[in-house]
């Protein structure tokens, strides 16, 4: 929630700088962040604002926040209110896919026009340093033997952490419906439960546990990316540990329904230009996000695939019927 706020001062400064360099740009955009100011999506939206204006791709960018219910309130407003408007965009991500199903949202992601995936963050599974579990295989054996005895600490129910716990159980041949997942509010509480030895394992974005991992208080069982993370070369991937599982907490940007093909192309081109700009690269570096740009039809297919995967998991763990 925090990072975005920090960027706010920088945003203003850069927005001013942007005005001078971007005299030729005509694009005026409105980006909705379906979360409170300070949330991850808000951070993405405001970083986009910063990159788009600073690089001169857009003349002006406005960010508005509509928070509530995992982004589904913003989504509903976007689908109904921005229909056919080629100057609007909305930030979304992995979490919204689950929230739509959980909250029985009347609108869903098939109603928006996919534009591009922008960033992704690897997840990590950790155990307390004094835990007898050393590797992904150790954890897999326990989950297979008795899923009830393996307590997982992570973020909100139905969120990316929860879904990953279920996917892990499924991937190792355990019973995903029987996982004992305990949602905590915010990373801090889950971390405390881990450090206090109250739970078996914890799942979160790598950044959230980084300090404790480096201090040797938590041990990495596996990261969820395809290859080892550049900032944590010692941490093995789950795949190396013999668990065939890849989960990325991605963020993307979509346009309203009912826009014309030209409008869509303008937006898609702008996003592609932004994603390849040096301003965007600097923001990604400063915030520790990975570039995961994926545009056009590929992103559309990716979104469908993730939707199907998340839907199946949520039904498996019994959160959606």
């Amino acid at each position: 929630m925090l990072k975005s706020i920090l960027s706010r001062g920088a945003v203003t400064a850069l927005a001013l700088a942007g005005l001078t360099t971007a005299a030729f740009a005509q694009l005026e955009l409105k980006i909705m962040a379906p979360a409170a100011p300070g949330g991850g999506w808000d951070g993405t939206a405001r970083s986009m604002q910063q990159a788009l204006t600073a690089s001169g791709i857009a003349k002006s960018v406005q960010v508005n926040n509509v928070n509530g219910a995992g982004g589904t309130i913003g989504l509903a407003q976007f689908v109904n209110g921005a229909k056919g408007d080629g100057s609007q965009l909305m930030v979304n991500g992995f979490v919204m896919v689950g929230a739509i199903l959980l909250n029985k949202s009347p609108v869903n992601l098939s109603q928006v026009t996919p534009i591009a995936r922008l960033t992704a963050e690897a997840q990590v599974i950790v155990v307390p340093a004094d835990s007898p579990i050393k590797t992904a295989k150790d954890l897999a054996d326990r989950v297979k033997a008795d899923p009830a005895k393996v307590t997982w600490a992570g973020g909100s129910a139905g969120g990316v952490d929860h879904i990953m716990a279920a996917l892990f159980a499924g991937a190792v041949g355990g019973d995903a419906t029987k996982i004992n997942y305990i949602p905590f509010s915010g990373g801090g509480e889950a971390l405390a439960a881990l450090l206090g030895g109250r739970v078996t394992a914890g799942i979160s974005g790598y950044g959230e546990f980084e300090g404790q991992i480096k201090a040797g208080k938590l041990r990495v069982v596996g990261v969820s990316s395809g290859a080892r993370l550049p900032n944590a070369p010692d941490a093995p991937t789950l795949k190396e540990g013999g668990v065939n599982l890849e989960v990325l907490n991605w963020r993307s940007v979509v346009a309203p329904p009912g826009i014309t093909a030209e409008q869509r192309k303008v937006l898609a081109d702008a996003m592609e230009k932004m994603a390849k700009s040096k301003e965007w690269a600097e923001i990604l570096k400063a915030r520790g996000w990975d570039d995961a740009y994926l545009g056009g039809a590929e992103f559309e297919a990716f979104l469908k695939a993730e939707d199907a995967r998340v839907g199946k998991v949520l039904r498996d763990v019994g959160l959606v019927k």
Partner: peptide
Amino acid sequence: LGLPTSATAAIMLAGFQQYGLNPGP
């Protein structure tokens, strides 16, 4: 520990990181 346990603390954590302070053990 680097544990933000309130909304204010969470924002402070982000602030500290900006100052080059990485709260934690």
